[in-house]
C-alpha cells in the first residue's frame, strides 16, 4: 500500500453507521418559456419536485401495499419522464438540477421499496412520523441554507415574472389552466392546514404560488402556514434534541437545538440551551457567543443568560466584554456571577 503521509492528514475516517440526513435541495421555480423544455413538463417538474419529501410510495405514485411488480412498473413509467437522458444537452436552466434531483429521489424510492427488508424499515419510520417525514417545509426563506440554487431578490423576481407573464398573454388558456391548478393546490393546502398537517400544507400552498405567482391571498396564507410549519418543525427538533441528551449524544443534541432556534428565532431559552452546548460540548466559541448574545437580546433581564455570555467571553480571552456581562448578571441578581467575576 502506498504509505500514509505523516502529519495531520493521516487518519482516514472510520465508518460509523448512522442515519443519513436528508438534505433535499430546494428550488425556486417559475415557468420559463425561453427554455428548451415544454412548459407542460416544467409544470410537471415543479409539482414533482415539490412533493419529494412525501412518503416514498407517494413519490412513485403507488399504494402503500403495492407489490414489487407494480412498483417496478411505476418506476419505469416515471423514469421515462424524469431521467436526465430525456433532456440530453438541452437548455434547461434551473430545471437541469431539478431533473437530476427528481430522478435520484425516484431511484431511491424504487431501491428502498423494491427490497422487502428496507421497505419494512422505511414504512415503519414513515408511519411513526406521520405525514411529516422529517424534512423541513419547502420554505422560501434564505436561511434554510441547504439550497443549491442562487436566490434572486424579490424585486428582480417580480420584474422577471411580469416580463414572462406579459409574454404569456397569448396563452390565455394555459394561464387559466395554471390558475386552476394553483387553486386546487391551495385548497388541498387549506385542507391539510385544517387537518393540522402543517408541513404538507406549506408544501401545497407553495406549489399554488408557483402556479399563480400573482395571487396575494396565496402569499399571505403561505406566511401563516409556514409559521405553523416552522413551529411544528422546531417542536420536533426539540424532541429529537431531548432524545439525544438522554443518550448523552450532546453533539447531536446541539445541532438539533441550533436548527430548532432557526425555526423559533424568538425563543431565548432555546438559544441559551444551544449556546451552553456550543460552548461546553462542541467547543465552538463563536457560535456560543452568537447564540448567547441572541438569548440576551431576547430576554435582557435574565441574569443567567448574561452570566453565561460572560463566561464564554472569558473562555475566549475577551476580559473586558466578560466583565461587562458578568456585572450585568450580578446586577440582575444572578448568584453564580459574583464568584465568576471574582475569578476574572
Amino acid at each position: 500500500m502506498d504509505c500514509v503521509p505523516s502529519g495531520e492528514a493521516q487518519g482516514e475516517g472510520q465508518a460509523r453507521p448512522r442515519q443519513t440526513r436528508r438534505d433535499l435541495p430546494q428550488f425556486e421555480l417559475e415557468i420559463d418559456e425561453s427554455l428548451d423544455l415544454d412548459p407542460k413538463i416544467q409544470e410537471e417538474l415543479i409539482e414533482f419536485v415539490g412533493g419529494l419529501s412525501r412518503p416514498y410510495h407517494e413519490i412513485l405514485g403507488v399504494a402503500p401495499d403495492a407489490d414489487t411488480r407494480a412498483i417496478k412498473k411505476a418506476y419505469f413509467q416515471k423514469s421515462k419522464r424524469f431521467h436526465p437522458d430525456r433532456y440530453f444537452r438541452k437548455n434547461l436552466g434551473e430545471y437541469e438540477a431539478v431533473i437530476d434531483t427528481c430522478f435520484k429521489r425516484l431511484l431511491e424510492a424504487y431501491e428502498l421499496l423494491s427490497d422487502p427488508a428496507t421497505r419494512a424499515e422505511v414504512q415503519k419510520s414513515e408511519t411513526s412520523s406521520g405525514s411529516a417525514t422529517g424534512d423541513g417545509p419547502s420554505s422560501g426563506d434564505a436561511a434554510t441554507g441547504s439550497s443549491k440554487t442562487p436566490r434572486v431578490s424579490g424585486a428582480v423576481a417580480a420584474r422577471r415574472l411580469r416580463r414572462r407573464m406579459s409574454g404569456l398573454q397569448g396563452h390565455k388558456k394555459i394561464r387559466q389552466e395554471r390558475k386552476q391548478k394553483a387553486k386546487s393546490f391551495f385548497e388541498s393546502g387549506i385542507a391539510a392546514f385544517r387537518g393540522e398537517r402543517w408541513l404538507e400544507a406549506a408544501g401545497s400552498v407553495r406549489l399554488a404560488i408557483a402556479f399563480d405567482p400573482d395571487n396575494e391571498v396565496y402569499r399571505e396564507e403561505f406566511g401563516k402556514v409556514q409559521r405553523k410549519a416552522h413551529e411544528m418543525r422546531a417542536a420536533q427538533l426539540q424532541k429529537q434534541a431531548d432524545a439525544a441528551m438522554d443518550l448523552r449524544d450532546l453533539g447531536e443534541a446541539f445541532s438539533h437545538l441550533e436548527e430548532a432556534f432557526h425555526y423559533r428565532p424568538f425563543d431565548g431559552e432555546l438559544a441559551f440551551r444551544a449556546a451552553q452546548l456550543a460552548w461546553q460540548v462542541v467547543g465552538d466559541l463563536h457560535k456560543a457567543k452568537d447564540l448567547a448574545s441572541s438569548a440576551c437580546e431576547l430576554e435582557p433581564e435574565n441574569g443567567a443568560y448574561h452570566r453565561v455570555l460572560g463566561q464564554i467571553y472569558k473562555a475566549a480571552g475577551l476580559a473586558a466584554n466578560a466583565k461587562r456581562e458578568l456585572e450585568t448578571a450580578v446586577r440582575l441578581k444572578d448568584k453564580e456571577a459574583k464568584a465568576e467575576l471574582r475569578g476574572l
Binding site: 492528514a9 475516517g13 460509523r16
Partner: peptide, 16 residues
C-alpha cells in the same frame, strides 16, 4: 452519502 469520523484525538484533518 455516509457519515465518517476521526481515528485520533484532536485530529484536525482527514484525507479522503
Amino acid at each position: 452519502s455516509h457519515v465518517f469520523t476521526t481515528t485520533r484525538d484532536n485530529q484536525s484533518a482527514v484525507k479522503i
